[in-house]
Design a binder for these strands. Structure first.
Lengths: 333, 333
DNA sequence: CTGTTAGCGCCTTCAC
DNA sequence: GTGAAGGCGCTAACAG
């Protein structure tokens, strides 16, 4: 019925049940060393008074808040939204709450948020942190338990990541099989892990396939970036284009089609991420499905393990699956 | 440098600075009644020991956590993601943290989350709560300060909402001007506010425009739902279709085009929400831009006002703007 | 201006 | 089995 008028405390319950504070505490925490009869009486009083232990006071004395923090560079990014969702779900299933913080792509904010959110939680999950490796190691080390998503091996802390390199390898193999030998790669953010990992995959592939030429072109990270790159791609004479992400691919797709180029007959286009709309373009986009939700779930799993004392959870690397749709086809003769 | 080895407390700082606890507390809280010299000494000690007051202990004694909760029915929904982002940004700017909770479209979960998250925060923002009005009033009343997003007048608590009804009115007027007289409405979730508000707009419009026929068809809430409704829409003989949201509109668009219907020449299609991809369909989607980010910002503004003691912040209603793109055109002769 | 004393609400030794 | 007392870390009276 009526809410606690002004804050029911454990003392009120004790008085109502005619026992001491300790007994209430014990009874409500299912401590077996309490007379079942009393326990029941206490529970009844608690219910009647609509009492719930203050999580704050509890946290202070227990040293656990039952809350973790998730720090992301940009809440507007679908991938981070999905990771957050994965964490949120999984953590909730284990009875934990989630604090979110958006660093707005600022390394300074990131550093500050990591430490400040840590103080009000039991641990923090850093998603694709933008800070340099050295700093990341230091910051993350100082706030453990911490879990890092989508960065490569930072020493002892658990890392959960998508294997961009392997995924790009799959895409290249796919295009190669279709006969493509001249390929253009629309690079995204220079210093990002997602980009460098793919450059590595490209280097590896061209090493083992001397008959393939892959040229790099700046493509930005959004629809407009892809659209702007269209002329360059068309002039390059390439028969296939690898976009940094699906948005870029969609921009490119739209722009090249507007100038009379047929996809995939004249040009094959490959995206990355498999955002929800990738399947709705015309033609539907061939891409690599980054398992963002699972990334989030795994990040929680790692965090949960740390919280339970199981130290040094292994790092996990998820392999984005190649999703072949209509935007790729045999290379034109 | 090194992190607090095991938890630096205010006592450590006091000892280091050679003063009492209270002086440290006062100095660090910029209490003017402290000797500037001492204050400086304390700050120096604090910095040297890398001390920061425990937010937990602080919250307990102050009765404020500097944190608010946001409860959403589904973190996968772009609209809620955007609202969350708006809240997050705005709250962060005012020095507040945000706890997120996903009720997974469950009324039970919603009720529980509302009250449990409230206990560890200073207030909660309920986004499009699914519980019935009566219950909403009771629950929200019990956890105030609370702010409700996208529900209509629930008594005394502040409401921040998008005016679905007015927006649909705009869309109907737009179609009417283009000459459309036979229109089909793809209804979404029956009992949702977003749906009933639009049915009201339709009733109002047909009342004042007897020459217009608007038929209702079940259209679901996603791409597939829209696609499935395509045959019904085509058979109806309507020259324009209003979709429950952009996803439905895209599904319909895709399906009718596949069966040879030209948009907008044979059929005009209108979406709702203006999700990021609405501008990238072919043709681009005419829709109503729901200002989700601003909804979130306003929700925070209302919450902030409550937190500052300014009672009964006024409810705000945001008018989604009609965005005319290529999917609507003159009615066929 | 500064130090001492109470709590905030709860859990947990420690005696009974 | 149960109650009394101490303390988690901090702030806010209350004296000096």
């Amino acid at each position: 019925m009526a809410r606690p008028p002004k804050g029911v405390t454990i003392a009120d319950v004790a008085a109502h049940a005619g026992v001491s504070l300790s007994t209430v505490s014990r009874a409500l925490n299912d401590n077996p060393t309490v007379d079942p009869v009393l326990a029941e009486r206490v529970r009844a009083s608690a219910t009647e008074l609509n009492y719930t232990a203050s999580p704050l006071a509890r946290s202070l004395v227990l040293g656990r808040t039952q809350t973790i923090a998730v720090v992301v560079p940009d809440l507007a990014n679908p991938t981070f939204q999905e990771i957050l969702r994965g964490v949120s779900r999984a953590a909730a299933a284990d009875g934990y709450h989630v604090l979110v913080a958006d660093s707005a792509e600022s390394v300074d904010e990131e550093r500050v948020l990591a430490t400040t959110t840590r103080r009000r939680t039991d641990g923090v999950i850093l998603c694709s942190p933008r800070m340099p490796q050295e700093e990341l190691d230091r910051v993350a080390g100082g706030i453990r338990p911490a879990v890092v998503v989508n960065r490569t091996g930072a020493g002892t802390l658990p890392i959960v990541r998508a294997d961009y390199r392997a995924a790009l390898g799959d895409q290249l193999a796919h295009l190669y099989e279709l006969g493509h030998r001249r390929i253009v790669f629309l690079a995204g953010i220079e210093r990002s892990v997602a980009n460098t990992a793919r450059l590595a995959a490209i280097a590896e592939f061209t090493d083992s396939h001397p008959d393939v030429t892959i040229t790099e072109v700046a493509g930005g990270v959004d629809f407009d970036g892809g659209a702007r790159a269209a002329p360059t791609v068309l002039e390059s004479g390439a028969t296939a284009a690898l976009a940094f992400n699906d948005l870029v691919a969609m921009g490119l797709l739209s722009a090249v089609q507007a100038s009379g180029c047929r996809v995939p007959d004249d040009l094959s286009i490959v995206g990355f991420d498999d955002i929800p709309f990738a399947q709705y373009t015309s033609p539907p986009l061939t891409t690599a499905a980054v398992p963002a939700l699972e990334l989030g779930e795994q990040a929680w799993a790692a965090m949960h393990a740390l919280l339970e004392g199981e130290d040094a959870a292994d790092s996990v690397s998820l392999h984005p699956e190649l999703v072949v749709r209509g935007s790729t086809g045999p290379a034109p003769a």
